[in-house]
């Protein structure tokens, strides 16, 4: 496993970039939004950065409020 990760670490760059992209998109939306579901923005920030990949998706699908 360790050998594989050492020799193939480049393969994870795109994965990390997508995760970062999703997080930034979700964070920008969170900052701009006046109201969120549940009312507390910092909780959603926790979700976005605490859960890789699915955190931003969960926020974007469930957390936004018009």
């Amino acid at each position: 496993m360790a050998e594989f990760l050492a020799s193939h670490w480049q393969l994870f760059i795109p994965v990390a970039l997508i995760d970062l992209g999703l997080k930034i998109a979700a964070l920008v939306d969170l900052i701009r939004r006046e109201q969120v579901v549940g009312g507390r923005k910092w909780l959603w920030a926790l979700v976005i950065f605490g859960i890789n990949f699915f955190g931003p998706v969960i926020y974007l699908v469930l957390g936004r409020k018009e």
Partner: peptide, 20 residues
Amino acid sequence: TYKLFVVPGLFLLFGLTSPI
């Protein structure tokens, strides 16, 4: 809207991680 990020982003993620 967020949709441009969610569906292609997740699909792409599966494309990259499933083989690994």
